[in-house]
Amino acid sequence: MKNTKKILILITVVLTILTLSGCNKEVKTIKIAEQYGLAYAPLQVMKENGLLEEALGDEYEVEWIKLANTAAIREAMLGDDLDVGFMGIPPFLIGVDNGMEWKIISGLSESPLGLVVNDSSINTLEELVGQGKIALPQPGSIQHILLSMTAKDQLGDATIFDKQLISMKHPDGVLALNAGTEIVGHYTSPPFLFQELQNKDNHLLTVGTDGTKGEFTFIVGVCRENFHNDTKVYNKFNEALNKSIELLNEIDEETLTQLANSYELDKDILTEYLAEDGMAYGTYVKGVDKFIKFMADTGYISKIYTEKEVTWE
């Protein structure tokens, strides 16, 4: 009996130490998470040219992580394993609503988003109701929210397509749409959107701005208070981000070659993609209020948040 007691105490101590040991960590490595797509191009530029390392000096190391979805980014940040994450506005807001203490550092890009269908008999959103599956990255993603916004506007019901959704990564969605499985639609972003539209059997059913009725920022960068409070690093990060966006907006041959390599795209095609309507890179943030209003109205988030509650500056 005495032994049992000792063992119990020992286990309690070990478990407590294990639980606590994750909490203290020195911020010497800056970890940044991005996802897949052309909208993240400034980060590619920043990474390829070592702009952040240059701005921060030798004291800091920069680590880039590519994660498949916002849930993974949120979890990594909760586990203190990530400093900055880039994502669409709606999943960021869902995080805020769930008690995640993060705010927007800066915008990154605007981009056309759209629902591509492979059935030529479907020409309106109404005709899509009950017709096969619609692929998009995940519930609560910007693609899902844009589709819901458009559905509410045109058909009066934001959730009308929810039973038809299937969760797929962008590249899998492209394959599934082209393979002619039960997937009839794919709500996606560039370069996947442009690639799908090059196939003559596919056509664009609706675009993101049909839902928002105006321009909106696609990707934003967010961080928690500990990173924001480290003013020096925070400012250097913004500096490097500005510089990357500048480089991309006045794109030269060298940057173009870099990007073409990292996206595995032909240089001419990439130039075409970057010049498409609606592609824009900048640190401004547009349309957050529209997402907040819609998501609060439809119950994706519990209340209206003010701009101050969701952005650092």
């Binding site: 979805n69 916002t70 849930a71 949120r74 999943p91 869902i94 995080g95 609503d97 769930n98 995640m100 995940q138 519930p139 609560g140 993603s141 969760s167 994706y300």
Partner: peptide, 9 residues
């Protein structure tokens, strides 16, 4: 999967 996507721990 869905609960995770909605950050519902």
């Amino acid at each position: 999967y869905e609960r995770r996507a909605f950050g519902d721990v």
